[in-house]
C-alpha cells in the first residue's frame, strides 16, 4: 500500500514536471515575442474556408517578409476570440462584421484592421445561401412568413441577411420564425423537416446541395452587392501601441488575400490541411471573394439594416471601428 502510494506520488510528480515543462514552452510563444527581428503574433481564427488566405500567406512567406511569424490558433467562434483579443491573449482575431459592430456599439475596444472575406456578389453563386429541402413548396423568401428558418446565431449577420431577402421579396421579416442552429447541423435538420429553411454557408451548403436542396436566395448578396462579411481585428490598445506591427500585418494580409483570390486551387489544397472537409465536398465548395480592401459602403448598408432590426443598443461608430 505504502509502496503503491509512493509510486503513484512519484509518477504524478514526474508527470506534473514534464507537463509543466511542455506548457511553459507553449506559454513563451503564446503572446507576442520577438527574436532576431521576427515578431510572433497570435491570431485567433475559426477553422473554416474563410481564413485560408492567412494559412496560405504564412506558407508563401508573405508574413515572414514583413518580419511577422503567425501563430494560428483556432476557436469555435467570436465568443471565444473577442475576449482573447481584447485581453491581449491574441494580437489579432477574425470576426464577422455584425459581431464587430455590436462589440463596438457596446464600447468593447476593438478595431477592424484588415479585410477578411466578401460575398461573391453573384446571386445563386455565393458561398452562403438561404436553402430549402428538395421537395419544399417554398419558392421565394416571401413564403417564409410563418415558417421556421435556421440561422447560426440569432440577432447577427445571417439573420439580418435573411430578413433583407424576405423584405426584398415583398414579405414581412417579422413574421419569420428564426431559430438558432449550428451550420453543421442544418443539413440534417432541413432534411428531417425540423426547419423549413436554413441560412447556410460552405461546406454545409455543399452538403445540402448534394442532398438535392435548393437555394431560394443569396441573402448575403441581397444585403449589398459586394458585402464585406468578416474582417480581421485587433484591440484598440494594441493598435495604438504597435502601429508598425499592425501596418505590417495589414500589408501581409492584403498580399495574402490577393494571392488567395487568384489561386483557388492552392486555396482548396491548404484548406484540406487545417479542416477535415472531405475531398469530394471540397471540390464542390464555392469559395468566397478575398478583396484586399474592405468595402465600406457595404458595411454601412449592413449597419443600417442591423439598426432597423434593433441589433445595436447605440449606433456603432464606423469611423472608430474601421479607421
Amino acid at each position: 500500500m505504502r509502496r503503491l502510494l509512493a509510486a503513484v506520488a512519484a509518477g504524478t510528480f514526474l508527470f506534473a514536471v514534464t507537463a509543466c515543462g511542455s506548457s511553459d514552452d507553449g506559454g513563451s510563444s503564446d503572446g507576442e515575442g520577438s527574436s532576431g527581428g521576427v515578431t510572433t503574433v497570435t491570431v485567433g481564427l475559426i477553422p473554416i474556408v474563410d481564413v485560408a488566405p492567412l494559412y496560405l500567406g504564412q506558407e508563401k512567406g508573405f508574413f515572414e517578409k514583413q518580419g511577422l511569424k503567425l501563430k494560428l490558433t483556432t476557436a469555435q467562434g467570436g465568443a471565444a476570440i473577442v475576449p482573447a483579443v481584447v485581453s491581449g491573449q491574441y494580437q489579432f482575431g477574425f470576426s464577422n462584421m455584425t459581431s464587430l459592430m455590436i462589440a463596438q456599439s457596446n464600447n468593447v475596444p476593438v478595431k477592424a484592421i484588415a479585410n477578411g472575406i466578401a460575398s461573391t456578389g453573384q446571386g445563386g453563386k455565393d458561398f452562403g445561401a438561404l436553402t430549402v429541402k428538395k421537395d419544399s413548396a417554398v419558392k421565394s423568401p416571401k413564403e417564409l412568413e410563418g415558417k421556421k428558418v435556421a440561422v447560426n446565431t440569432l440577432k447577427n449577420i445571417n439573420e439580418t441577411a435573411v430578413r433583407e431577402s424576405v423584405r426584398k421579396a415583398g414579405g414581412d421579416p417579422d413574421k419569420v420564425q428564426f431559430v438558432e442552429l449550428a451550420f453543421d447541423q442544418m443539413p440534417a435538420a432541413l432534411d428531417a423537416g425540423q426547419i423549413d429553411a436554413a441560412m447556410v454557408v460552405e461546406p454545409a451548403l455543399a452538403t445540402i446541395k448534394s442532398q438535392g436542396g435548393r437555394e431560394i436566395a443569396s441573402s448575403l448578396v441581397d444585403v449589398a452587392p459586394d458585402l464585406t462579411v468578416a474582417m480581421y481585428f485587433t484591440s484598440t490598445q494594441y493598435a495604438q501601441e504597435n502601429p508598425e506591427l499592425v501596418k505590417k500585418f495589414q500589408d501581409a494580409t492584403a498580399e495574402s488575400l490577393a494571392y488567395a483570390d487568384a489561386h483557388p486551387d492552392e486555396v482548396r489544397q491548404i484548406v484540406s490541411t487545417y479542416t477535415k472537409i472531405p475531398p469530394a465536398v471540397l471540390e464542390q465548395v464555392t469559395l468566397p471573394k478575398w478583396p484586399a480592401e474592405a468595402n465600406r459602403a457595404s458595411i454601412e448598408k449592413l449597419m443600417q439594416l442591423g439598426e432597423d432590426d434593433g441589433l445595436f443598443k447605440t449606433t456603432p461608430d464606423l469611423d472608430k471601428l474601421l479607421s
Partner: peptide, 21 residues
C-alpha cells in the same frame, strides 16, 4: 476543447463537425 478550441480531441471533433466530416 470543443467549445473554446484549445488543442485536443475536442477541437478535432469541432473541426470535423464544421467540415461536414
Amino acid at each position: 476543447e470543443l467549445v473554446i478550441g484549445a488543442p485536443g480531441l475536442g477541437a478535432r471533433i469541432a473541426i470535423a463537425q464544421n467540415s461536414q466530416a
